[in-house]
Amino acid sequence: MEQARTIEQSFRASYGRYAARYGRHRLNYKTNISARYRYVYVETAKVACSSIKQTLQSAEFGRPGLRYAHPQDVHRRELSPLLRPEQFAAVDVFTAPDFFRFCFVRNPFSRLLSAYLDKIAGGKPQKAKILGALGRPEDDFSHPVPFETFVAIVCDQDDEAMDLHWRPQSTETMIEDVRYDFIGRAERFEADFAAVLNRVGIDPALYASRQDAHRTGADEKLRMHYTCEMEQRVVRRFARDFALFGYPPEIGA
């Protein structure tokens, strides 16, 4: 009994360390735990997270084809059947051997452009802080922000100042603390996600779902938006992402 209590206290201490390092809200928002299928999915914004969560929540509910009335509801944790680390505080789900841990990553050039097209050019709330950085009123959404300006602002931000939609993936995946069993790529999403679903016991044919509300087609638009100078600036700022996840530090390589 005493040994079990000591182990539980150790796990709770681990949760406290993760919460202190990443922030309690951020940690619990991004981490999706299945008690039914015994997996941990750490999400990264702008890397098919809407599609992944739609599928995983549908399977957890046991309701194929589940769709929320509002696409954004898939991101509301209070509606999700997937659990948060604070609900599993007695178990270190980031290292425990009986959980399958996975995440997905994306080419940093494409992810940054997709964030811009969706959130900044698309006039979403994330534009407000970029406007503020330019000295503009944060509610002046009619003011255009060129991609080059956005890149300059973002590349001068530290990780904590960044919005989660463009914060480095090496930070968002908590790569230093999570013992991943699988890191999938957005560039081969269908095959990699099907492999994940099969591994945890979810039938892809029954549950796999694609959520297109935030798709921007950024992968095909890189040369239209990046100059050589912008390309190099992104390579320097996101150097760890390029290195850790094996993406070439040049467009079209």
Rank of each mutant, 00 (worst) to 15 (best):
A69S: 07
H70T: 10
D156R: 10
V234N: 05
K119W: 00
L113P: 09
A4I: 15
L117P: 01
K53S: 10
A243Q: 08
I33T: 05
V151L: 06
L56H: 00
P144C: 05
R199I: 00
Y22E: 07
L131K: 05
R199V: 01
Q211V: 14
I130S: 07
Q3N: 10
E220F: 13
E86I: 12
V154H: 06
C103H: 08
D163Q: 05
L117K: 04
Y68P: 12
A90V: 06
R24Q: 12
C155R: 02
F147Y: 10
A69H: 03
I175E: 05
R84T: 11
Y41S: 03
R179E: 07
P204E: 08
S114Q: 05
H25R: 14
I52L: 13
C103D: 04
P248W: 11
H70E: 14
A4D: 10
Y37F: 14
R240N: 15
D192V: 05
R106L: 03
Q232N: 13
T44F: 06
A89W: 00
F11W: 12
L83W: 08
H214E: 14
P64K: 11
D219I: 12
A13T: 14
Y22L: 07
Y247Q: 04
R38I: 01
V105H: 04
A89T: 00
N28E: 08
M174I: 02
Q54M: 13
D212I: 15
V145L: 03
D118P: 03
V145M: 01
D98P: 01
D92Y: 00
D118G: 15
R136H: 13
D158P: 12
W166P: 09
R26T: 10
L206K: 15
A186N: 13
N28S: 07
Y37I: 04
E190H: 11
R24A: 15
S170H: 05
A96H: 05
G23L: 02
Y39T: 06
E229W: 02
P125N: 09
R199P: 10
L117E: 07
V40P: 15
E190C: 12
Y207G: 09
L164F: 15
E148P: 15
I153A: 02
Q126M: 09
R237V: 11
V145A: 01
P137F: 00
G252E: 01
